[in-house]
Design a binder for these strands. Structure first.
Lengths: 172, 172
DNA sequence: CCAACTGCTTGTGTTTTGCAAGTGGTTGTG
DNA sequence: CACAACCACTTGCAAAACACAAGCAGTTGG
């Protein structure tokens, strides 16, 4: 965002980092969509961010310490964006916001299922998901839990709804 | 914000309502600063919103169902802005955002104390505070609890820090 | 009666955003 | 080894959002 500081209030400072129209959506795609490259973030999101805005936000988020960028060893031009611990800890913010959205706004069934699961799972589920993100993004090993990960559970629930809708459509 | 809908994602829809630079700050001032009139919101905030932007956001938030506006019976020109249940339930979002800000950003001691208390109090304290807001803004009676309200506790903690700093400054 | 206050609106300049096209380079394939 | 596809961005320009200062019709309190 801007460099000037409006006030030392916690909420204001947080908004100066992620309080624009796109930053939290980018972080959402990294967290829930497992996007790690510029091109993935540009093309595989539902909202369609402009390339210049995406480039600018990624730079800003790296400067703010929410993301890191490193070169992809498998491809000289690719960069890999990873969440920092600071970025991972935005998950509760996103979860609360999603819970609010799902309660009061016309969220589509496909896209709302993850918000609902995350709300029902509560802070315990968030913590587990954050541990998974620490493993993926920071390389911090975690104790293996039995059963599927939170990430997998969210993904499968989403896919199940999409399949259900596709089936309904076929019948009609 | 804009009328066009980018996607049916819960987080995206939430951001379309409160995802600009000012909306959440206005709601913060109403919740934590107990501002209810246009002029209070305009002049008693640390950040200094422009009058036209404030007017526009209040209108948008009323249309979105986050706030209501009624005439002040004591003054023909004054309007009273109140939170709806939908607006009150933004408190957890603000609380999470504040907790994140206080952990990672250069929050001033005065302005951070409330965020810390709210974080340490956890969801239980948030629920109590929301009940107090329901009483103030919706007129819904709540069971009286013993001891000072959450709102009072937050205010007193803030004032104590301000007083402490003033004392330090006098000594220096 | 009048200064101060009320919730806004208006006008103007600046910043941010959105869209389309382009850039220099890398990679996979026939 | 030529060439199309892909890579992360950049550039130029129009549109929208924002910031600042001033103004407005009406109300209130002294």
């Amino acid at each position: 965002m801007t460099d000037i500081q409006r006030s030392g209030c916690a909420i204001n400072l947080a908004l100066e980092v992620v309080g624009d129209k796109w930053s939290l959506l980018i972080i959402r795609d990294i967290i829930f969509g497992n996007r790690r490259h510029y091109r993935e973030l540009l093309t595989k999101s539902d909202e369609g961010i402009s390339s210049n805005i995406l480039a600018d936000r990624l730079k800003t988020l790296v400067e703010a310490g929410v993301l890191t960028r490193e070169d992809d060893p498998t491809h000289k031009q690719k960069g890999i964006y990873s969440l920092t611990e600071q970025g991972i800890e935005l998950l509760p913010v996103l979860a609360q916001m999603a819970a609010w959205g799902v309660k009061y706004l016309p969220v589509s069934e496909e896209l709302g299922i993850r918000a609902q699961l995350l709300r029902d799972g509560g802070p315990k589920m968030w913590a587990e998901f954050m541990d998974e993100l620490r493993e993926t993004h920071l390389g911090i090993r975690r104790r293996r839990k039995s059963g599927p990960s939170v990430g997998e559970r969210l993904r499968k629930a989403y896919e199940a709804i999409v399949a259900k809708h596709a089936a309904t459509k076929r019948k009609a």
